[in-house]
Design a protein around this nucleic acid. Structure first.
Lengths: 257, 257
DNA sequence: CAGTGGTCTAGACCACACT
DNA sequence: GTGTGGTCTAGACCACTGC
């Protein structure tokens, strides 16, 4: 890393700032690059801190700070005595990484695994809204799927989702319903797309007749609408999802700090 | 800190774990204690890392790690070149620290300051639900307030809140409506109660007639119900709040990572 | 300029997991 | 035992703020 100067002096200019970037940030970027390019795959160990330090020609403490940040963003998982691993949606203790819906009175976190009924999965052209969410142009090909999640046999969530047709070309209803584990685990294992963060917009809405029927409620039942954009590495949007949540038996739980 | 042994060896026993606590965690606890006991008040500087290191007889790096964690929990705020400050709800760039509601199409984050109309503030005895949220017994005295928030003159949020009567004995509708800044800034400045985190449960509901009238909607308009418990230092609950949010012009925004 | 937090290093030792 | 991440230290130097 000796080749990267901390802050090359600039010529006289009115530009805002020289943009000093600490070494550990650069190392973080290099590790991120390795993750994106698949050098280390989800679930695998990455080299030890000393190995990485030797590779990048910095001290172990500098690597540590880079890895610390990546771990705090849930891109890596540290396990004392074993090593540092690439985070994965598979083999994860929490069944649904991004699902914030909880039963109102539940001993467990989510009454065990949900039943997932895939209703549909087909190719479409993107509406303006979907295109803008996914960073595509209106009319671009997308895959659209619809499914219902049932907890202890009660239909609780109706989800519609849109995926860019490029990376997910091979996705079918069979593959969606045939897999074990969460949908994101499937995306990761079968399509090499790992979702790392998401943004949600919540609203209270009334369902149309079809939606109400699928959830077993009347059209007068208020539902929680959850629009989610999920991002892979480098803030690239890879999924737009709209969920309708029943909140008569469950609630959306959020931690503010 | 030399007096605190890292892990005193235990006699043969079936107890779960010796509970090793790193030095920086102990330092963190000591700083936290200073915050709770008001040794350093919101907005004030705390001693420099070297001063704290000398005081606690540890190295500066150990203090740094403790302060880092407190800063990541928003209990402290670091400012390079100036010092480390106790976080405060006053003089904060974000008007509402815990409010996640955003305008659907807003250039600004929240259309400038809201109008706050306090409708009520009186003493009550706690219901079972309120008592359990606040860690009190049913029947204990609480203060109940109700207010409406308007954005660009449109009533958007109806809030009911309950506070333990002890710390907030002197609270009146006048003081609630007469202050500048957020309610939590008032609590902090006038009652010495600083909220540090909160938990929310969200549901979609229909308002009753009174609620609908106050928000200027029909009783058939679905609203977002947001139940919040806010905690001060040491996870002590100090406020229970129930908000009804209009989501026809706004949405609740959440980051998942 | 002095004082603060921020970065980087190097080395020692501890806790934990696997073999 | 060996190797991993986790803690702790001590010291040097950098970046930013305010006097």
């Amino acid at each position: 890393m000796a080749s990267i100067a901390p802050t090359p002096p600039l010529a006289d200019t009115a530009l805002p700032a020289p943009a000093f970037s600490p070494l550990y940030q650069q190392i973080k970027g290099l590790i991120l690059q390795g993750l994106q390019q698949g050098e280390w795959k989800p679930g695998e160990v990455i080299p030890s801190e000393f190995d990485l330090a030797a590779r990048y020609k910095v001290s172990q403490g500098t690597v540590r700070k880079a890895v610390d940040e990546l771990a705090s963003e849930h891109l890596l998982v540290r396990r004392q005595g074993r090593g540092t691993f690439v985070a994965t949606h598979a083999e994860q203790q929490v069944e649904y990484r991004f699902l914030r819906l909880q039963p109102d009175y539940g001993t467990q976190s989510n009454e065990g695994p949900a039943q997932r009924d895939v209703l549909e999965c087909r190719r479409q052209s993107a509406s303006v809204k979907v295109a803008s969410a996914l960073g595509l142009r209106a009319g671009d090909a997308v895959l659209r799927a619809r499914r219902v999640l049932r907890f202890v046999d009660v239909p609780t969530i109706l989800e519609d989702l849109w995926l860019p047709a490029g990376p997910f070309k091979e996705l079918t209803a069979e593959r969606l319903s045939g897999h074990h584990g969460s949908m994101y685990a499937l995306f990761e294992a079968e399509f090499g797309v790992r979702m790392v963060r998401a943004e949600e917009k919540l609203r209270a809405v009334l369902p149309d007749k079809a939606q109400a029927a699928l959830l077993g409620v009347t059209p007068a039942t208020p539902l929680l609408s959850v629009e989610r954009i999920a991002y892979t590495y480098n803030d690239v949007p890879m999924e737009f999802r709209r969920g309708l949540y029943r909140t008569d038996t469950h609630h959306y739980h959020n931690q503010l700090s």
